[in-house]
Amino acid sequence: MFRFIARRLLETIPVLLIIVTATFFMVRFVPGGPFDNEKATTPEIRANLEAYYGLNLPLHQQYLNYLKAVVLHGDLGRSTKYASRTVNEIIADKLPASLQLGSLALLIALVLGLTAGVVAAVNRNTKIDYFTSTFSMVGICVPTFVLGPVLVLIFAIKLGWFNASGWYEWQDRILPSLTLGIVYAASIARLTRGGMLEVLNQDYIRTARAKGASEARIIFRHALRGGLLPVVSFLGPAIAGILTGSFVIETIFQIPGLGREFVNSAFNRDYTLVLGTVILYAVLIIGLNLVVDVVQVWLNPKLKFE
């Protein structure tokens, strides 16, 4: 297992390098630069700014300097938009909100999805099952940017239970994480139902029944472990989706998170901030995918750490 993890970590290095390189050069070759929007920059000021950020050096030199700073010091440079702030500071400032939103959404997705899926599978082909399945289909088909505003309309504006936007009190967390979580809860419910149904027909479940194990024990102890497999393999894409999905949620609910900052930084041609966030997201997604893979093998004795 350690060899597996070590090998995967090693594989990550070239992948990250490719991401950094691709983003670095893509950002540089696009039309427009970070100082285009400034009001009437004189050539002198511009030259000064470029010197300050090292943008006057040859491109390959900039690239090597950037890599060196990132790898050796974890230093993502200074934001070209907010000259007084480093990218590390901005990330430290904005990431917590996004992480909170993401983990709450994931929690909601797992709790809601697993419960619904297990309930539907156990009560297969009953009204409960049809109800749950239809509901999860609805959850999959209503995109977050429709669901979010609709929830705001109902619960914040009409009923007045929550604030329509903002990120101050704990109540402000509920609607955004619910919006983001429901879509994935729906997918997880479908996967859990499918996985559980497959497992519940297996011989070893019949054996457990024959031995007189209680229904609860059979479901939670014997079936769930196998039934969870499709869910776990879905978690990789789900995590990536939740991370990027938070862009939209943060826009709808005016949350001061990294997602919104990222989209803005792209509009502002904030080279360093774009690069920094892309690297961070890549590391997060790749790292979490690795965790998912490990859990998957750990749950399923048929798979091996190859």
């Binding site: 991401i19 691709a22 990536a240 966030t277 892309v278 997201y281 790749i286």
Partner: peptide, 9 residues
């Protein structure tokens, strides 16, 4: 495993 949506953006 790549954050593709980010690249599309």
């Amino acid at each position: 495993a790549l954050p593709f949506t980010i690249f599309v953006i």
